[in-house]
Design a protein around this nucleic acid. Structure first.
Lengths: 348, 348
DNA sequence: TTGTACGCGTTATCAG
DNA sequence: CTGATAACGCGTACAA
């Protein structure tokens, strides 16, 4: 039946009554307050156990003005990077007795604003955010800041005062990838990436451009494809590439799913990888290791990012450190060279 | 600085004072109670807006004995199936003004028990669980049931009274897969699967066995590999297969990641797929489409499972239906035949 | 239509 | 070492 009623909860008053002591004594015993005798503590705990007592967390929250809940807002959950990041956060949070409450912005600014509002209503102790694809206006974070709720961005970050960013050096990672491709003899390199309002994509685009310039190759807008980096976008990009003349000899893609999809489609049309076109992706998604050839990528460890973000926020909340909340933390990322980009040197 | 203080929150008392009305009037106005004049309602809402009022959710929870929070406990977050399932739950929950709080059991029974305890402390309105790999003892769910908190399992379910299960027909799915392999001329079929204490794996094992028997092939324990279905397990299984004599001519694996890893390793050792060995996986993970050959699999749509689970729980919570909580919901799954198992018929 | 007063379960303060 | 009491912010019976 739908309307089975919940059992009424046991409170500290019930325990107090059963033991003929005061509620305060019970409260203190339960948290091992130093000024309570071991004997009383034991007695109370036993009774609590016996009666199936469970502390009421709202009442606690109400009194302490703290929830031990961390809010997490991400564009979408089901990418390898994001689910790993969340896994990392959950791990650290759990270890520190924090809970995690999750919301997706579905890559849209309006849902993101709604999620922020919801998180504030939940009175989360802190907020972790990775921005939606098209968020331009950042005013929905104003209340968070004004209100004094610590705010940390990761991956797709905002440049706000009073918030911390956790990122990798996207510029350098892209620079290294593209330089590697050039080293392999590639000179006409397509770059597939996302909305350049997002730091991650603008950073990579800049790295791409600078690597070209530093190697005396010219930069052309025509070789830069901006899309959503989804599976279908990789296919469409492949179509475009097949029709280009002269044909590019390398593709540097901002994520592995799109890179793999693009590569597969090229191969289905007779292109040999890496001989005709070399491929490099981004993220070190497991998928990059299972395709043939395996694709060169940038190791961007979501689990670790998540752990660092969560630990940082918690340190801040616990006042364990004196690090300002206005800060940027840059994690390492590493170029992983695999077969998709390795070929015998050619004369240019 | 770490100790920047949060702004004190605006309460209904503050609004009441500013407007010179009583707190109850404010409370009622805010929720459009019918017995309040439109004028007052407008006045109050404006003032609330102006003062940046935000209802205190603990106080509400404390009064209403309800949190609008759904607890979700899963073995791990970072598999495609799980993150999709959670994405689906989040979507439905959000639409119905529920929040989702997530915890991982990391595939161990003890963490699972801890998570359950944590969820009860949070006073979640309902609990969604997919069991850890090795959970045998189910007593940590007793309190949940006694307490009257609705409990729904999905994928890896428990056979408890007073809880709902959302599953697919694992037996039938496996039966169909294996029958297909047999149709393709395979007769010596290895099955790689997980702990058969879990319904999903025992169901698939039974389907595998029955398909063999129904096609007059013998069942042998030697062809069944039980492991954790991770990437490395696929490799190890491949090693074993390479050393078997006579060599199997097909492998039916209980998940795609393991299937792909096994196939790749076989290929690296000169086995041709599907000619020498046919492969079938499970889940329709994106990875199954990107490898070569693409692998035959069972479409098991995590997003949809998540949506159904969450919707069901919410219906129950809202009393919108009269469906008993003791129930099993079986969703469709579909065999997807791809190149990894398709070969010209051979004489047996 | 609005106001009063109390309780939800805890914890902190102050007194003994 | 222990007890009484007052909040925390909101909702709701009951009164007016």
């Amino acid at each position: 039946m739908a309307n089975q009623s919940k059992k009424p909860d046991v409170t500290i008053y019930d325990i107090a009554e059963a033991l003929e002591v005061s509620p305060s004594t019970v409260s203190r015993s339960l948290k091992e307050h130093p000024s309570i005798s071991k004997k009383t503590i034991r007695k109370v705990r036993n009774q609590a156990e016996k009666m199936g007592y469970r502390s009421n967390i709202f009442a606690q929250n109400l009194r302490r003005q703290k929830t031990n809940i961390i809010g997490v807002i991400v564009p979408r959950l089901n990418s390898h990077f994001m689910s790993s990041a969340i896994s990392g956060m959950e791990r650290v949070a759990n270890k520190n007795h924090y809970k995690i409450i999750i919301s997706q912005s579905h890559e849209t600014a309006s849902d993101e604003a709604g999620s922020v509002e919801m998180m504030l209503e939940q009175r989360v102790d802190g907020l972790i955010v990775s921005l939606a694809y098209n968020t331009e206006d950042m005013t929905h974070f104003d209340t968070v800041i004004e209100q004094g709720t610590p705010l940390i961005f990761f991956d797709r970050v905002a440049e706000l005062t009073n918030s911390t960013n956790v990122v990798i050096d996207n510029y350098q990672a892209a620079y290294d990838s593209v330089s590697h491709l050039i080293d392999q003899g590639c000179s006409r390199i397509v770059h597939i990436t996302g909305n350049t309002s997002r730091n991650v994509y603008s950073g990579r685009l800049n790295g791409y451009r600078q690597a070209l310039l530093d190697h005396e190759l010219s930069f052309s807008e025509d070789l830069v494809f901006i899309n959503d980096l989804q599976e279908r976008d990789g296919q469409e990009a492949a179509e475009k590439i097949l029709q280009m003349d002269p044909r590019p000899d390398a593709v540097f893609v901002s994520n592995d799913v799109c890179a793999v999809s693009c590569m597969t489609h090229l191969q289905e049309n007779g292109i040999r990888v890496p001989r005709d076109i070399a491929i490099a992706g981004f993220n070190n998604d497991p998928i990059s290791r299972f395709v043939k050839p395996k694709i060169t990528t940038v190791d961007y460890d979501g689990q670790r990012v998540g752990e660092v973000v969560a630990q940082n926020l918690i340190n801040h909340l616990e006042g364990d450190d004196h690090i300002s909340i206005t800060n940027t933390i840059v994690l390492n990322s590493e170029l992983i060279i695999r077969a998709s980009s390795q070929r015998s040197k050619q004369t240019k």
